[in-house]
Simulated assay, not measured.
Amino acid sequence: MKKRIWFNRTFSTAYHFIDMIRSQSDEFEFECYVTHPKRYSVMLQNADFAEIEPSLPVSEYIEYCVQFCQKHQIDIFFPNYRLVEIAKHLERFEQVGTSVLVCKDAALLETISDKGKLFHALQDTSGVHIPDYYIVNTREQFKSAYDKLREKGHRVCFKPARGEGGAGFHIVEEAIDPLDKLMGLSNQMITINEVLNILADQTVDDIMVMEYLDEWEYSIDCLATKEKLLAIVPRKKVEGRIRLLEENQTLIDLAKAVHEKLQLPYLFNIQVKYKNGVPKLLEINPRASGGLHVSCLSGVNFPYLAMKLLLVGKVDVVAPKFGVYATHIEKEIVLRQLL
C-alpha cells in the first residue's frame, strides 16, 4: 500500500529519516515529498518530489501547507516547522485527507515551546529536576537574577525563553580575557557589564537566566502514544561527535515522568544536562530530534514506527540495544538541479 509523506522545511539530518522509512519492509510503501526554502538543501535531494518552499507569514504559510497536501494528495504530513500553528488547524488537513504527525494539543505545544512555561508546568513533577532560573525582560531584572544565582554559588548562563537549540546561548562572566575573545576562544561568553550595557533601557522578549550546567549532556528520544511510552533511548554526548546510546535508568524514569505529565504522542525529545550528578531539564522538543537517526542504531526505527502509529494506531517495538558508540563523517553528495 503506497502512502505519500511530506516533510516541510527541516534539518539536514532528516535525510536519514527518509532512508529509514523507505528501507522498512512492511505493509506500507512510501513516496516522499520534501519542501525547503533553500534551493540547495540536501533534503530536497532525497525526495521523490521536491519543491522550493516560499517564505510566508504564518496565516499564508498554513494556507500553503493545506493546498500542498490537497494538490499532491499527501497521506501523512511530517512537520518540523511551525508545529504550533499547524496543530491549531488540524481539521483543515483532515478535510483534505491528510493525517499530521503532531501532538493535537496546540496549547500544550505553546507551553513546551516557552521554556519558562515548561519549567513552571514541570516544577512539581517527581523525578524531573529543574535548574535554578529566572525569566527577565529588563536590565534591572537581569542584574537581580544574576546576583541571586551567583549568591547561590552558580555560574550563570542565559538564552531566549523561546529559543531553539543553542541559538542565543551565552555564559556570563565577571570578566573575559580580551585575547581569548579576539581568538574566538570565548565566543559563547559575555561579561555581565556587556549584557547590562546592551539591555540599557530596553524591554526585551523573555530571557531565561539560569544556573550553568557543566557536566554530561543527554538527548532522550522517545516514541509514544498519548497513553503509553513505547521506546526510550538516552543518547549521551561523549565528546566532539561521539555519541553513546546508554541504558541510563535515571533518564528512562525521567522520560516516563515527563510523559505521564504531558502525554505527548508520537516522537518527542528531552534535553538534559547534569550538574553535581543530577540531570536537570534543558528543554523538550515535541518532534523528531536532529540526532534521532543515531538513536535508531538501537534497532528502533523511530520515524517509521511513528508514522505507522499514526496510520494504524499500534506498533510492535523491539527492545532497544544499548552500549552503542557512534559518530559520523562527511560524505559528498552531488546536487541535482531543481527547476
Rank of each mutant, 00 (worst) to 15 (best):
L196T: 10
E85T: 01
Y33G: 01
A231D: 11
G299K: 00
I135W: 07
A161T: 03
E246Q: 14
I62P: 04
A288T: 05
F322A: 04
P279N: 11
E94Q: 11
V58Y: 13
E260C: 12
M43S: 03
M1N: 10
P286R: 10
K3D: 02
V258W: 01
C65A: 10
K181Q: 15
D316Y: 09
R92L: 13
V96M: 01
Y325D: 07
E164V: 13
I232P: 06
K88Y: 14
A306E: 06
P234V: 12
K331L: 12
A257N: 03
A47W: 00
L251Y: 12
T138C: 05
G163H: 01
Y61R: 01
S113C: 14
V238T: 13
Q67C: 04
T138K: 03
F169G: 07
K117L: 14
D105T: 01
G313R: 07
I21H: 03
V209Y: 06
K148N: 15
L311V: 11
E260G: 15
L182P: 00
R150V: 06
M1G: 12
I190Y: 06
V238C: 07
L282N: 12
F158D: 11
E164G: 09
Y146G: 02
L182V: 06
Q123D: 13
K308G: 05
T125C: 11
L118K: 05
P37S: 03
L335H: 13
L310P: 06
T225M: 10
I232S: 03
E151V: 08
K261V: 06
R155D: 15
P234K: 02
P54L: 00
D201Y: 00
L297C: 03
E27G: 14
R139S: 10
V300Y: 07
K71C: 11
K308Q: 15
G127W: 00
Q337I: 11
I52E: 07
Q141S: 13
A145I: 07
I52G: 02
F28S: 00
L118C: 12
L90E: 03
V258F: 04
R82C: 09
I284A: 04
A87E: 04
D48Y: 02
Y81I: 09
F7V: 03
Q123A: 10
Y274V: 05
E247N: 14
V96Q: 04
F11N: 12
Q202V: 05
K256S: 09
A167T: 13
N8R: 07
N8H: 01
D205T: 14
H154G: 10
S126M: 13
G184Q: 12
I62G: 04
K104L: 07
T98E: 06
L179V: 15
R92C: 05
E332D: 15
E63W: 09
L56P: 10
K256T: 08
G299L: 06
K321Y: 08
F268C: 04
I252F: 04
T225R: 06
L56S: 09
E110Y: 08
A257L: 02
S23G: 11
N301W: 09
N301E: 00
L305W: 02
I190E: 01
V278I: 14
I52Q: 09
V233T: 14
V258S: 06
G313P: 00
